[in-house]
Amino acid sequence: MVQNRSVELLVGVFMAAGLVALFFLAMQVGNLSASTNGEGYLVTARFDNIGSLKEKAPVTMAGVRVGRVSAIGFDQATYEAVVTLSIDPKYVTIPDDTFAKIFTAGLLGEQYVGLDPGGSEEYLKHGDQLALTQSALVLEEIIGQFLFSKAEEGVE
């Protein structure tokens, strides 16, 4: 029966669409997937503290996005965070003494990596490591330091 066959086909399409939607919710919306975009060259940077930096966060230079955070690891020997940055391949003239800092976008916004270019003649290439980094500002620490200095003023 032709009609019966087309009914079965449409039911199959419906079930497949529903399952694809469930799969999409699990992989893309939930955090089951571990896909990283392969494009771009990889550069690592070590930070004492990355705050709440997440994978796929933007990497910017002069406010323009030049790449993404592709992986975040932890070095057990030095107790530092190892952040792998995937830089867009069209930006090939970034000096190798570039300074990497972690900033926060707005008061409640997410954290991102900002790059300040250095003066070196050598350019960054795949596998390089950024030597100069500055950790994320953790609000509690700053408040703690502020209170501490205030208390010291009071003693004198």
Partner: peptide, 24 residues
């Protein structure tokens, strides 16, 4: 809105069991 932030924040905050399974 930044594309990466849109997905990464979503994936960081939406839990597979807590949110997706309970919805199902």
């Amino acid at each position: 809105v930044d594309e990466g932030a849109f997905w990464s924040q979503m994936q960081a905050k939406i839990d597979l069991h807590e949110d997706v399974y309970n919805g199902v």
